Computed example of a mutant assay.
Amino acid sequence: MSETVLIAAGGTGGHISPGVALAEILINKREHFKISDVYIHSLTRNKDNPDLISPPCEVLWHSMPQFKAVYFLIFPFQFLIQFVITIFSFQKRSITSVIGMGGYSSLPAILYAILFRKKLFLCEQNCIPGKITRTFHNFAKKVALSFPIREEVFKTKESSVIGNPIRLKVIPEHLNIRQNENLHDSKKNILNVLVLGGSQGARQLNNMILKTMENPEISQKFKFRLLTGNSLYEETKNKSKGNTEIISYSNDMKPNYEWANIVVARSGAGVLAECLVYGLPMVLIPYPFAADNHQKENAEYVENQGAAVIIHSTSDDPSPLVKHLLDWKTNPEQLKEMGHNSLRLSNVNAAYLTISYFFPH
């Protein structure tokens, strides 16, 4: 029997990108996994998301409201309207399986699978499972994990640590080969530092890098490429005085990862997965207000595995970053070892293995 699969990938890029990666595999290996049709279910406000402008399959848009206490009286009616629309849309397309990528926007698809007894699979990107995963894991046939989790919430359910699915356009051309091995040679004068604040940017990271570049020794030994986020580009550009390459956003991250020797970033699961497949050492500055503090847990896992160092700070003080960079410049073997640890943690085939786990053939 062939499956009609819906991927609920709605909230943020951290949910959308791995969902698109799974859709790519389902489309490309349709006959292998006995798939008839594939759909993505996403929020209307994500129509400008780069991964959904030219998606691998049809996107079913919805406007599921996010619960806010101030609107608690009208929320049930808004939710009910969107859920009824979801039911008719899914029944029209004969959905047989739902893959939930997490986030509140996946709720209508998950409820549909439960109420109409369709196959339900969940993907959890972070070391601390999100509310959707914690609430509905007992209804799922299988749960695919990106990292080992600390909370013992899957004792009674089948789960597997596979890795975070990565889009085809991001995957390195030379698989399983150490990325930029020669760039960690101590004879090289300049090391390239890629700074990622996420699609919305991070003022703290932007300002920290600009201050770091004011250090004369840093400016001589490192080159920075700073992805500011669209909303913070002009502000950061106007503040910049040093030799920093400032970009608002990049739709094609592969050249940036190939250029980099070191990454400075938040610790969202998507960024971590992409840096790992390129074998990149990381300086992680977790976003302190992330739900359940999951970025801190993600960062600590990668640091404990020897692939990153963490700066726990909400200020733009450059001192910790300057210290790490100068230490690595004088001790390139440490940086090289971190790169190998990074590559060891990666799973470039996570998307294919996740689909194989959900739909064994």
Score class of each variant (00 low, 15 high):
299 A>N: 01
298 N>K: 07
289 F>A: 13
294 H>K: 07
320 P>R: 08
310 I>V: 10
300 E>K: 07
297 E>C: 14
305 Q>H: 15
314 T>K: 15
313 S>P: 06
320 P>H: 07
318 P>F: 04
297 E>L: 12
307 A>G: 01
302 V>H: 05
287 Y>G: 00
290 A>D: 03
298 N>D: 06
299 A>P: 06
318 P>N: 01
319 S>H: 10
299 A>L: 04
286 P>H: 04
314 T>Q: 12
300 E>V: 12
302 V>N: 03
318 P>H: 04
312 H>R: 12
310 I>T: 00
320 P>F: 11
315 S>K: 13
309 V>Q: 05
315 S>L: 05
318 P>L: 04
298 N>V: 08
322 V>K: 02
313 S>K: 08
289 F>Q: 10
288 P>N: 07
292 D>C: 12
292 D>K: 11
323 K>Y: 11
318 P>S: 06
290 A>R: 03
310 I>K: 03
294 H>V: 06
321 L>A: 08
286 P>R: 04
322 V>S: 01
315 S>V: 12
301 Y>C: 01
292 D>S: 12
306 G>S: 05
300 E>C: 10
291 A>L: 14
304 N>S: 14
314 T>R: 12
290 A>W: 06
307 A>E: 00
306 G>P: 05
294 H>E: 01
309 V>F: 10
287 Y>V: 06
291 A>M: 15
320 P>L: 13
296 K>T: 15
321 L>S: 05
293 N>S: 14
302 V>P: 00
311 I>T: 03
313 S>Y: 01
307 A>C: 08
302 V>A: 00
317 D>W: 09
316 D>N: 12
299 A>W: 00
316 D>V: 05
312 H>L: 12
291 A>R: 15
291 A>Q: 12
296 K>Y: 14
318 P>Q: 10
292 D>M: 09
314 T>G: 08
315 S>E: 08
319 S>R: 13
303 E>A: 09
302 V>L: 10
302 V>K: 02
286 P>L: 01
290 A>P: 01
314 T>S: 10
289 F>E: 09
297 E>R: 09
298 N>T: 10
296 K>P: 08
315 S>H: 03
297 E>H: 14
303 E>D: 09
315 S>Q: 05
293 N>E: 10
295 Q>G: 02
313 S>N: 10
298 N>L: 05
302 V>C: 04
323 K>E: 11
287 Y>E: 00
323 K>T: 15
323 K>R: 15
292 D>W: 09
305 Q>T: 15
295 Q>W: 02
290 A>F: 10
305 Q>A: 13
296 K>W: 12
316 D>Q: 06
303 E>I: 03
305 Q>W: 07
288 P>G: 09
292 D>A: 12
310 I>D: 05
314 T>E: 09
301 Y>E: 02
290 A>K: 07
317 D>N: 15
289 F>W: 09
304 N>C: 11
297 E>Q: 13
292 D>H: 13
304 N>D: 14
288 P>C: 09
315 S>P: 07
317 D>Y: 09
323 K>S: 15
291 A>G: 06
306 G>Q: 03
294 H>S: 01
287 Y>K: 05
286 P>T: 03
302 V>S: 01
306 G>M: 01
304 N>H: 13
293 N>D: 14
300 E>A: 02
314 T>P: 11
318 P>M: 05
